[in-house]
């Protein structure tokens, strides 16, 4: 049987993943567009930075975020100066961390979709006197729709599956930073295996359904 703290963790996780995904779609789309279209020699370095969270252990990301967001860190000093206070141990701190952590999972599918469109549809739009912004929204975005779907699903699912970073900067506060993965870890450490099973099984089912939906509804939007 789930207890109320388990349900609170589920609700918090869904909220975190939703907010993170929305922010990532807004932030990630221009980055993906730039990476897909630019002839700049900065394309390689920027692409590599975006992809870093795929290869870095979450502990590295969590450790640096803890230092950067803390009172002696650059971001921490900025947030204090801006009157926001410090981000570690807060819901918005987790959002910031998750945006970094899930960025490649959103940028890369959109970038791939933009690259697959190629130049011709956009050139055609230009000959029809569509402005670049107009062409972006009426040509590129609709053509890249499968990429956007993949990006949203992966960004959401990857944030739900986040553990190491949350552990490092979350502080395990009920209803603020205690997400499902941390709650499971606590149950296991406290030897509450029945509770751990309930939540862990939920995660397995959820993850399977998400990927099933992704591969069934959107067979072209494969994960790269």
């Amino acid at each position: 049987m789930p207890d109320p703290s388990d349900l609170a963790a589920v609700w918090l996780t869904l909220r975190l993943a939703t907010v993170t995904t929305l922010i990532l779609m807004v932030v990630g789309t221009p980055i993906a567009w730039w990476l897909a279209r630019t002839p700049s020699r900065w394309k390689g370095p920027v692409g590599a930075v975006v992809a870093l969270p795929i290869v870095l252990p979450p502990t590295v990301l969590g450790f640096y975020l803890l230092l950067l967001l803390g009172p002696n860190g650059v971001i921490g000093q900025f947030t204090q100066w801006a009157g926001i206070g410090l981000l570690p141990f807060t819901f918005w701190g987790l959002v910031v961390a998750s945006v970094f952590y899930s960025l490649p999972f959103v940028v890369q599918p959109i970038q791939n979709a933009f690259e697959a469109i190629g130049d011709r549809p956009l050139e055609a739009a230009a000959t029809l006197r569509a402005s670049r912004l107009d062409a972006f929204f009426t040509v590129a975005v609709p053509l890249a729709k499968p990429g956007f779907m993949t990006a949203a699903v992966l960004g959401f699912a990857h944030t739900v599956g986040e553990f190491g970073v949350v552990l490092m900067i979350g502080g395990n506060i009920p209803e603020k930073t205690r997400v499902v993965s941390v709650q499971i870890y606590d149950h296991v450490e406290a030897l509450e295996y029945a509770n751990a099973h309930w939540l862990a099984a939920l995660m397995v089912v959820f993850s399977f359904l998400v990927l099933l939906a992704l591969y069934t509804l959107n067979p072209t939007g494969k994960r790269k």
């Binding site: 803890l66 803390g70 009172p71 002696n72 410090l86 900067i169």
Partner: peptide, 12 residues
């Protein structure tokens, strides 16, 4: 150990 880390980094 992590409780110590939260304090040592000034976050708590």
């Amino acid at each position: 150990a992590q409780a110590h880390q939260f304090i040592a980094t000034g976050n708590a």
